[in-house]
Design a protein around this nucleic acid. Structure first.
Length: 296
DNA sequence: TGCCAGGCGCACA
DNA sequence: TGTGCGCATGGC
């Protein structure tokens, strides 16, 4: 695959289970451990066992997406031009819905590095072990909804998720009981699917939109968090005090059919800009991947 | 030490 | 309908 910035994609706040080690990214997709290494013009994938059919990985990475045709739909304004120039190769992933929903329930008022810590803890405490290559540390799958539904709130709180614990537990119970059928959301339009997700306590428009975009591929889902709101204000309304409602309307009308993709470019662009302001500081570990350790 | 984080729910005006 | 606050925790 060409035009694919693996590092930007895996660190852009879509997924929280990828860990950088010596030139590549280790993670777990479903019940499979996998290591991804960027190559010139492609991505090298290593698994823990022989695999003939890699469609689960290409689907996750969305390698079939023609990025050029997506970027061509973006509005031809200066902010988007700068975001694309800075983040070219950034992609959207297609994640498993339950893991995506649970992860973003845990994301509320957390920095990405903290979300990674909580998700790691949840997987280590409640996830099933997965096979890893010899010499690699053990790894766990993201725990199924049925597993988390059977866990007490205090056990969840032990993973440092705080007030999010009852929200995660309620979501797990809804999915495990069948009162929320995540598979069927794919058959709905985005508004109906969003309404289903927002029935869950702790899931509002932002988290619902993240799930619609990162798990189901609804391209019109446009999550607005503090970073995206800041991006819209600074890049499009720099001299005005614009209210959130106005920003939401703007987000739904300005960015075209792949507005969710455009949103991710703005999000990552703002975070990179924030990181660049700090880049004069002594650099992090020599082995650290770019754009990982960002400050406000 | 204080600010803030890929928010949400709720009380109150 | 809009606004402000509390929630739990930890990185910076």
């Amino acid at each position: 695959v060409r035009d694919y910035d693996l590092g930007a994609t895996l660190t852009s706040g879509q997924a929280f289970r990828w860990e950088y080690h010596t030139g590549g990214w280790d993670g777990v997709i479903g019940s499979r451990w996998v290591r991804l290494t960027p190559l010139s013009g492609g991505i090298c994938a290593e698994a823990a066992s022989d695999i003939n059919d890699w469609s689960w990985l290409t689907a996750y990475l969305e390698t079939e997406t023609d990025l050029g045709s997506v970027l061509a739909t973006f509005p031809a304004d200066e902010p988007m031009r700068r975001a694309v120039a800075t983040c070219r190769g950034l992609r959207l992933l297609r994640q498993e819905p339950w893991e995506c929903l649970a992860s973003f329930i845990l994301s509320s008022t957390k920095q990405i590095v903290q979300i990674q810590q909580i998700v790691r803890s949840v997987c280590q405490c409640f996830g099933a072990p997965v096979q890893t290559p010899p010499g690699r540390p053990h790894a766990c799958a993201f725990p199924a909804a049925e597993r988390l539904a059977a866990v007490s709130e205090s056990e969840l709180r032990a993973c440092k998720m705080g007030f999010r614990a009852p929200y995660l537990r309620a979501a797990a119970q809804a999915v495990a009981s069948g009162s929320l059928n995540l598979a069927k959301l794919a058959d709905l339009d985005s508004a109906a699917a969003r309404a289903q997700l927002e029935r869950l306590p702790g899931v509002g428009p932002k988290i619902a939109n993240c799930v619609l975009l990162f798990a189901y591929g609804f391209q019109d889902a446009f999550p607005v968090d503090v970073w995206v709101a800041r991006a819209l204000r600074e890049l499009y309304f720099p001299s005005r005090r614009v209210k959130l409602k106005r920003l939401l309307h703007f987000s739904q009308t300005h960015f075209g059919p792949f507005s969710g993709y455009a949103q991710q470019y703005l999000f990552h662009y703002m975070r990179r800009q924030a990181g660049r302001l700090q880049s004069s500081l002594p650099e992090n570990q020599p082995d650290a991947p770019p754009s990982q350790r960002l400050r406000r």
